[in-house]
Amino acid sequence: MAMRNLWRTFKNSAWLGWQMESNWADPYLFAIYSIVKPIAGTLILVFMYIFLSYAGGGGPTNPSLFGYMYLGNALFMYVAQVLFGVTWVIHDDREHYQTLKYIYISPANFYVYILGRSVSKIAVTTIGVIVTIIFGVTALGIQMPLSNISWPLMLLGMSIGLACIIAFGLALAGVSFLTARHAGGMNEGIAGIFYLFCGAIFPITVLPSWSWPLASVLPITYWLYVMRVAFFGLGSGVASYDAMLAGYDIMQGLLILTVSTLIFIALSFVIFRFGDYMARKKGLIDMTTGY
């Protein structure tokens, strides 16, 4: 019975999230919207690479770096979008629609409700990621033959990685209970930590050596590594481009990713519960901050 209730909450909140995400526009316009933003974000890096290569007089010369950067950036959309989406649910429901208090007094499990709301973000982001990868392969000449892709590894890595990203999102949602609406920079900043330290668009070894230990404890580092191996193959120039990670075999990468994800899931649950408790104690559940 309890499981059925949880499933119902999850299903309905996922449907609600999808409606909120998509029904403001007709499907055609929504599809364009879902594609333009991620492609533009990726093109910034593409143009940085191309312009710099031609400014140097020679043209693009480092396809391994380009592939490394392109795939990392495409996959990073999950981190940016899901982190932001999960966290924004708190501010949106609390201040915009002012429904947070009603969800609290309903029999729905709030934790599961947030999980359900994140599903729509994942769905929209997945469209963006797929389009970006196809664009990279067809228009920019990234060498990623379908026959070389390890589909089981990709699906496994993606499942663990998404669990990890959602866990981070839930932890931030816990913090959002206590922050004002204008603290949106928090999501941007936390995503920035991952973008900078996890080897999303450049090898970790480019960073100062003091930051390497930090990179090595963040699960996103290993998620991106596993995904690069899944897409390009273990011995490929892209997967082995980062000297710091090249020493790991795929089982080690997966193991570290799984263990660190489990730790972060536990941690996020504690942070979420703490934020929830403090918000109720301080009377912040229906706070509005219309500055």
């Binding site: 900043g189 995503a191 900078l196």
Partner: peptide, 8 residues
């Protein structure tokens, strides 16, 4: 926090 994204 914003400097992190820019630093990337």
């Amino acid at each position: 926090l914003p400097i992190l994204g820019i630093a990337a």
